[in-house]
């Protein structure tokens, strides 16, 4: 399955909040929808789920208009919420039946997912008696209870401790391995980096970066090197680079352990290395810059 969002626009009153969102994702892969608070991630997801109607644009599945009724979709909304006064199993079965599966299957699936998410002991407890983290796990279990082909998770990691985050991370990896189509939004770049092959960065209602994460990283690191010295502090090294190598490089950033330098046109890594070796700088690190998703996100979404 290839899921495509094309040029989605959405206005609330006179204000346009999405200015033409487009991205693509296919089965067996996960798309990480990234963006700062208020960038438009949740609105985009809500349009995918038909909670809001887009003013224009298309949502396609295998090139045809996306008919939600033909697919089982597991949706975890950003606004978490189930019935606090109902028992866990009762509401999971209800939600599964609402999505069209039989009561027996709903019951079996509920038990399976509660066990997988390590909350099966709360099966017959009222939701309100559970901790926030466990409530979130129950909500995730009810998202997956209908054995969905498409999984849409809005900020699934928020509110989870590292152990629970790891469980969720494993579950998402399993879903990807099972060939599910996964779309999720998150602020936790480490998780996105871990299992997303594709990302789409939304900034102020626009897609500012979209594509395969590996390629994006490669592109973003192209023409950049890292450098650190044993006899100069990073600040001193920065000043030195700016005075001696200003023709060849621009100092882009100071990280904790190294400087990031961007090579100017017509200069290569080796040219810089040759020049550095002519100076009194004793190299500690010198090499290709491999950006983290966090760096890319800050660079793109912080613009």
């Amino acid at each position: 399955m290839v899921f495509e969002v094309k040029n989605i626009r959405k206005s609330f009153g006179e204000t346009e909040v999405l200015h033409g969102i487009s991205f693509q994702v296919e089965s067996g892969k996960a798309l990480g929808l990234l963006g700062r608070n208020g960038a438009g991630k949740t609105t985009t997801i809500r349009i995918l789920m038909d909670v809001f109607r887009a003013n224009s644009g298309e949502i396609l599945m295998d090139g045809k208009p996306f008919d939600r009724s033909k697919y089982q979709i597991g949706y975890l909304p950003e606004e978490r919420g189930l019935y606090p006064k109902k028992t866990v199993i009762e509401q999971m079965i209800y939600l599964a039946c609402l999505r069209g599966i039989s009561k027996k299957e709903a019951s079996d699936n509920s038990k399976k997912w509660l066990k997988r998410l390590e909350v099966s002991e709360y099966e017959n407890k009222k939701l309100e008696t559970l901790s926030k983290g466990n409530q979130q796990k129950v909500q995730l279990a009810s998202t997956l209870v209908c054995n969905p082909e498409i999984v849409i998770l809005d900020e699934p990691f928020s509110g989870l401790d590292p152990v629970n985050s790891q469980i969720l991370k494993d579950v998402v990896k399993e879903l990807i391995q099972q060939g599910k189509l996964v779309i999720f939004s998150s602020h936790q770049m480490a998780y996105v980096e871990d299992f997303c092959e594709n990302i789409a960065v939304i900034n102020r209602g626009n897609i500012v970066l979209n594509g395969e994460l590996k390629e994006i990283k490669k592109d973003f690191g192209k023409g950049r090197v890292i450098i650190s010295s044993e006899n100069y502090s990073l600040e001193e090294l920065k000043q030195k680079c700016e005075s001696i190598f200003s023709q060849m490089v621009i100092v882009k950033d100071i990280k904790k352990d190294y400087l990031i330098l961007e090579l100017k046109e017509n200069y290569k890594k080796n040219n810089l290395l040759e020049e550095v070796l002519k100076t009194d700088i004793e190299l500690e690190h010198f090499g290709n810059y491999e950006p983290s998703l966090n760096d890319i996100f800050v660079a793109k979404a912080g613009e």
């Binding site: 909670v51 189930l82 019935y83 609402l98 999505r99």
Partner: peptide, 12 residues
């Protein structure tokens, strides 16, 4: 109030 409405309207 308990925010379950979003899950409901997207399910049925």
């Amino acid at each position: 109030s308990n925010r379950s409405i979003e899950v409901l309207v997207t399910s049925v």
